[in-house]
């Protein structure tokens, strides 16, 4: 279908139409923190932001606290309520995510569907979601999506994309799922040719506005020789170990599974976000901790994204959103770290 265009003030009506068939999730501001939530009132949607939200939309498919099953004791029996096969009543439209975040869902999927056991919790939600990205007309100084294969107007894993043309929006679809959504918006006019040309222009300008360019083609090979390098101690010297770089990373997916007891007879097994930056993350039952030094944890983060991901899945595990740079209390800068990885001469023996 041709892209649709509509006046900005029509946005709430558009969402209203979509809400007839779908649940709508979008960016909202709580205090000064931008996060994604199911929208009850469409006027809450906040699209006037530059760069990524503080809390990434991964929290929708992979929430910080997720119930895996609940249990109930009845006399001597235990009744389990498995939530892994639970289907949502409606398909959800995740609206207004940055193209880098849209891509992150595909990277998370690589992990959650890898190997013999599929993660039904994530995959079920993924398959029942429609991703509507919001193209980046403006970028932040910390954005570096183009260095990791992305683009401010990137299409990867976007079913649809919303483009801001000043007074109006253009909504364009890239997939069948997206077509289905567009077909419910028949009352809106097709976007005229000049709008589409304008999109090209804005896209080019946005791409040019990204100032960080890193050649990361062979980084996984370079890293492979740098396990014992001195840079890891340097990168991690000031690190607080708060793990916000990974908690709030759209592609980080580590979790812990624990039991949350409600009372003597009821409780739930839940999974919660975990991060390789916490010392307790790798602490073993014996008390031994194979990754008990800060430098080892700093190394793990870079290795996971730029060595293990390319080795296991053939792609970089980073979408270049720059959240980890903006949110680090100590201004640890992954761009700097990557640039130094390349600079370092690797030992040849």
């Amino acid at each position: 279908m041709n892209p649709k265009s509509f006046e900005k003030r029509e946005l709430q009506n558009v969402l209203q139409i979509l809400a007839e068939n779908y649940d709508i999730v979008g960016p909202v501001k709580e205090g000064n923190v931008l996060k994604y939530k199911k929208l009850d009132k469409f006027e809450d949607i906040y699209l006037d932001f530059v760069g990524p939200s503080a809390i990434p939309p991964k929290s929708i498919l992979f929430p910080q606290r997720e119930v895996l099953f609940t249990y109930e004791l009845e006399n001597k029996d235990v009744k389990l309520h498995d939530l892994s096969q639970q289907k949502p009543a409606k398909i959800q439209v995740i609206f207004g995510i940055r193209p880098c975040d849209a891509k992150s869902f595909a990277l998370l999927k690589l992990f959650f569907e890898w190997g013999k056991y599929k993660d039904a919790y994530y995959l079920e939600k993924f398959n029942n979601s429609i991703f509507v990205s919001l193209a980046c007309n403006n970028t932040k100084s910390t954005c570096f999506c183009t260095s990791v294969g992305g683009d401010p107007f990137g299409k990867e894993n976007s079913d649809l994309q919303l483009v801001d043309l000043g007074k109006k929006y253009v909504l364009r679809s890239f997939t069948q799922k997206g077509e289905a959504v567009l077909s419910t918006l028949k009352k809106y006019a097709d976007a005229p040719k000049e709008d589409l040309q304008k999109i090209e222009q804005i896209n080019n300008d946005a791409r040019k506005s990204i100032k960080t360019h890193l050649e990361l083609g062979k980084i996984h090979e370079q890293l492979a020789n740098m396990w014992d390098d001195k840079i890891w101690a340097k990168f991690s010297a000031a690190c607080l170990g708060c793990g916000s770089c990974s908690f709030l990373c759209p592609t980080c997916h580590c979790f812990d599974v624990i039991d949350d007891r409600t009372d003597e007879r009821h409780g739930a097994r839940i999974r919660v976000w975990d991060t390789c930056q916490f010392p307790i993350f790798t602490k073993q039952g014996s008390g031994f901790n194979p990754r008990d030094a800060k430098l080892a944890r700093a190394r793990q983060r870079i290795f996971h994204k730029f060595n293990y991901y390319p080795t296991n899945y053939g792609v970089l595990g980073c979408v270049g959103c720059g959240r980890c740079i903006c949110l680090c209390p100590m201004n640890s800068d992954i761009r700097d770290e990557l640039a130094k990885v390349k600079e370092v001469k690797t030992a040849t023996t």
Partner: peptide, 16 residues
């Protein structure tokens, strides 16, 4: 509750 609702329990406050 309002102030703390955005806490992700990263413990940066504790670590700093």
């Amino acid at each position: 509750n309002e102030t703390l609702k955005n806490c992700t329990r990263c413990y940066a406050c504790r670590e700093a």
